[in-house]
């Protein structure tokens, strides 16, 4: 897949001297959903703002669809749609007018049929004549998405689109994102909800203190870094682990009524067979077994902590 957004050695130093981006290099592939993860102040919004033209880069280069976002800003920007983190809408404008305004700003002529399609897709059609200040928070977020889609962009930046919305609406948003991807739109998503990235992203980029720590296929990342836990419920609680059973990656939990064994799924041997044999030899009776896999959130926290250490 070719890169539709190409960021090379991007640096941003604010007037006060704070370096928000420290030479970020990132290629975003056409048609993918890239989740940009990072703690607060990591540089996610600065990166998006610089690509979109709100913030000026101190150095480095950004191209969108092969067009430089400074020297060929018209062509570059016309390919981009942005849904900002904050709900920013003029309160007295109607939904229809505010969406029409954005389409005009992007140099597109009037196309009522297209705007109707976008508003219907986002369940906003019956609110088209409502003023934005009359809408709920969730509806306002949909209006922001409608505005971003009003000129049929090829690249859509969603800066924490589901922050503060309820679970149902969040899942609706995921469905909308899935539909957009099916239409061929490239989506860059920043989020605090790791489950969101886990649910919809194709690739994950982790940013911390203005540096990209990794960019990897989500599934590969989870396979590569995932650890599993085997939980063993015991018939009778143990006060301590017998020496023949004790291992570094085995711990006694819940007042001795259960054991948790951590293992690497990519390893040649998991050690489960030997552990179960040891338990049998030590005369420890088992009640139940279950396994759990670490989530993207665990991986993310691990990565950020590891880098900070």
């Amino acid at each position: 897949m070719t890169a539709i957004v190409d960021v090379t050695d991007l640096r941003k130093v604010y007037d006060g001297g704070f370096e928000a981006l420290k030479g970020v290099t990132l290629q975003i592939r056409e048609g993918e959903i890239l989740a940009l993860l990072g703690p607060n102040g990591a540089g996610k919004t600065t990166l998006i703002s610089t690509i979109c033209g709100i913030t000026r880069a101190t150095s480095g280069r950004v191209s969108v669809g092969g067009y430089d976002n400074v020297t060929e800003f018209r062509k570059a920007r016309s390919l981009i749609g942005l849904v900002p983190q904050e709900i920013a809408l003029e309160p007295f404008e109607t939904v229809w007018n505010t969406v029409s305004l954005t389409r005009g700003l992007y140099g597109r002529g009037r196309d009522d049929a297209y705007l109707e399609k976008v508003l219907r897709q986002l369940s906003l059609w019956d609110k088209k004549d409502a003023r934005t200040m009359e809408l709920s928070g969730g509806m306002k977020r949909r209006v922001l998405i409608a505005k971003a889609l009003s000129h049929a962009p090829r690249v859509l930046f969603l800066d924490e689109p589901t922050a503060g919305v309820d679970v149902d609406l969040r899942r609706d948003m995921w469905n909308i994102v899935a539909d957009l991807k099916a239409d061929g739109v490239t989506i860059i998503l920043t989020t605090h909800y790791i489950e969101e990235a886990e649910a919809i992203a194709d690739r994950v980029a982790v940013i911390r203190k203005g540096e990209i720590l990794l960019v990897e296929e989500k599934d590969t990342l989870m396979r590569r870094m995932a650890q599993k836990e085997l939980r063993i419920e015991l018939q009778a609680p143990l006060s301590t682990l017998p020496e023949s059973v004790a291992r570094d990656n085995l711990r006694l939990v819940e007042d001795g009524s259960a054991l948790v064994y951590t293992y690497d799924t990519t390893g040649e041997r998991t050690g489960i067979t030997r552990l179960l044999a040891s338990l049998s030899e030590a005369g420890i009776a088992l009640k139940d077994l279950s396994t759990t896999q670490s989530s993207l959130e665990d991986i993310f926290v691990g990565l950020v902590k590891e880098d900070a250490a």
Binding site: L82, P84, A88, E90, L105
Partner: peptide
């Protein structure tokens, strides 16, 4: 001033204008 105040200035700054 009003778009700056409400934050909607972002769409003018990101548009190809």
């Amino acid at each position: 001033f009003f778009p700056k105040f409400t934050g909607t200035i972002y769409e003018v700054l990101t548009a190809p204008v």
